[in-house]
Design a protein around this nucleic acid. Structure first.
Lengths: 358, 358
DNA sequence: CGATGTCATGATATCGGTGTCATTAACAAT
DNA sequence: ATTGTTAATGACACCGATATCATGACATCG
């Protein structure tokens, strides 16, 4: 493999001049530059990032810790969409000339020290810590002393983080339902210990409050267990309870639950959306687009979160973080309206409202 | 950041001895080793992989090119499961003390040269090229001159690759259906230009042949288009046609199609599995497990493929590839039997056969 | 007992770049 | 004419490891 010395010799200049051609840190004569570039091309020269890192003390590497890649959760296969988050981050980093080192915790926290060791050996300039669902985490001390940004999670120490706007997402969804004429909106929630649960319920409530619609508390039921062992039984019962409150639409905690609700409603002979509208959360396209009818769902903006988190980390690294900036950033996503929601009781006013919305 | 010299000084030995403690390439006195290790711990020493790479000419890095991470296919969101492939590979590499550099082509082939440049700068020891579905690819020359293994794809130059055993998977599924008493087995296939299509159809045929069951050709229909624009119409018509041939079970090209078939069958008032059994392909658990009833599906063994591909690449790198070994390796997955398939016409013989199978 | 081998360790060069400083020429400003 | 400034380039040290070779202390062997 050709080195900078080979190139220098071939071009009849000093190695330092070759370096200057590559880095543009000092003026180089046009003819010299051409000669160097010709030599580089002929020798098929590729600079060694190891040597560069060593001398310049800048690795250009960003470490990313994620459980998603091998989240072999025993109970859940959540986290797959998190891969979009990787994508969003990767794009931003590539533009900033950084390379991503991805380490996979395999969902096991005890592996993190080893991954971190690898990161340190590679002298990563920062770490992006990605959780597979919105949750609180507590970082090992070793992680906290470097530059780090959390994505899809937060901690008690106010470490910089980027989170989905669950409150706003559920608000937008329910607000949209109300504008479409729904007044009795059932909500099958996540288990209550999930961070997203309380936020979304509060979005649900705010949408009702702001539109002056009262809530029948029987319409809100927990629809899922953390372990799926008796999930169907629970969902069946929860569905039973909300149906007794006679809703016109059922909001589900996520698209997977909505998929099950599709099956359960059909068993009861309720046609979607003619007799019952359904909405999900996540906008997990594999499900939402292929269900029949297409599932209306609030989007979890993973790609945008990844990009924002990457941005944030880059600013931390380059020290351009505006001091006014909050440590915690929320990212909102749109609602994908599909055929699983039917508009009800239209009148002129509501139609015009709806037009504004789009 | 502490260097090997700092450690050497603190332990009262030469840097080379510290190096020996870390690498174990020469005997070190027990007392010396202890002193060095103490010094390393106290100084919080982490060796620099850049320096190591430079001197030893071995980077310990493996490059992975994948479109999955940002496969923003306009029409398909296939490829998400491919992330399991990354997982499988990562695990093997970690054990072999290699670190994965993941580059994301964003589904755009024109970006690959840039990614490759990054890989070369980091002196990767090999490249794993991962496709988002079983397909033929043609590698740029620049990729072909390094050590490379293809996963989930193959090329015309017989580059080493690891592929899913589509023929065997469909065979196992249909064979299992026949053992469960089904004789009229419909098959809604992939579009014909997909590599997997012909393979799976041939597995379907072999299962019939080996069991002495004749095939009513009307039972085989293309069930999907490469673009989803009129996918539902096509599927509707295809379903119509196979139903006229009176099947007892419908095999779908993949789980997404099966999900749509669930909806369509229910619209026709056919209960699954009582009046019609359904099977998928991929074992995309997010879908298969959460559909109601659970979807029987042949597994695409992504994790295993990733591991096998990683193994293969490591053998290429270390030169331990057995010469007898084929360049093309097939990986088989099991069939996940769930409630969407009902057994028919049992008799004692078949019951005992079934017991052996599990 | 000298020759040879093994253990344990150190001295030194080197991997391939870049940071620092020096040098020269050309030209502008004083 | 003197000084200062900028462009263009090179010499040299150095980043932090490891490869190579050398060395001294013992143990083993014929």
């Amino acid at each position: 493999m050709a080195t900078i010395y080979d190139v220098a010799k071939a071009a009849g200049v000093s190695p330092k001049t070759v370096s200057r051609v590559m880095n543009g840190d000092a003026p180089v004569n046009e003819k010299t530059r051409a000669a160097v570039e010709t030599a580089m091309a002929q020798l098929n020269y590729v600079p060694s990032s190891a040597a560069r890192t060593m001398r310049s003390q800048r690795s250009g590497l960003i470490g990313m810790i994620t459980g998603a890649i091998s989240a072999v959760h025993e109970f859940e296969d959540a986290g797959l969409p998190e891969i979009y988050l990787v994508q969003g981050a990767q794009r931003v980093f590539a533009q900033a000339n950084r390379t991503l080192l991805i380490a996979d915790s395999g969902g096991r926290a005890d592996r993190i020290p080893a991954l971190l060791q690898t990161f340190r050996e590679h002298r990563v300039e920062g770490v992006l810590y990605v959780a597979d669902y919105h949750q609180q985490v507590s970082l090992p001390q070793s992680l906290r002393d470097g530059r780090i940004v959390l994505a899809n999670c937060f901690d008690a120490e106010d470490t910089p983080c980027v989170l989905p706007d669950d409150e706003g997402g559920q608000f937008a969804l329910v607000d949209g339902l109300i504008r479409r004429g729904h007044r009795r909106i059932a909500y099958l929630t996540l288990p209550e210990h999930y961070a997203a649960c309380a936020l979304r319920v509060s979005g649900y409530r705010r949408a009702h409050a702001e539109n002056g619609v009262e809530i029948d508390e029987r319409l809100i039921q927990v629809g899922a267990l953390p372990s799926p062992t008796h999930e169907f039984d629970l969902l069946w019962d929860a569905l039973d309870r909300v149906l007794r409150a006679e809703p016109t639409v059922i909001c589900c905690a996520n698209d997977k639950m909505a998929m099950r609700v599709y099956g359960l409603l059909r068993e009861r002979g309720l046609a979607i959306p003619r007799e019952m509208s359904v909405a999900g959360y996540d906008d997990y396209r594999t499900i939402a687009e292929h269900l029949h009818p297409g599932l209306t769902s609030a989007q979890l903006p993973y790609a945008a979160m990844g990009a924002r988190a990457a941005d944030k980390l880059l600013r931390l690294i380059t020290g351009t973080q505006r001091p006014a900036e909050a440590n915690r950033e929320l990212v909102s996503g749109p609602v994908a309206w599909r055929d699983s929601v039917q508009s009800r009781d239209f009148n002129i006013t509501q139609l015009s409202t709806r037009r504004k919305e789009t």
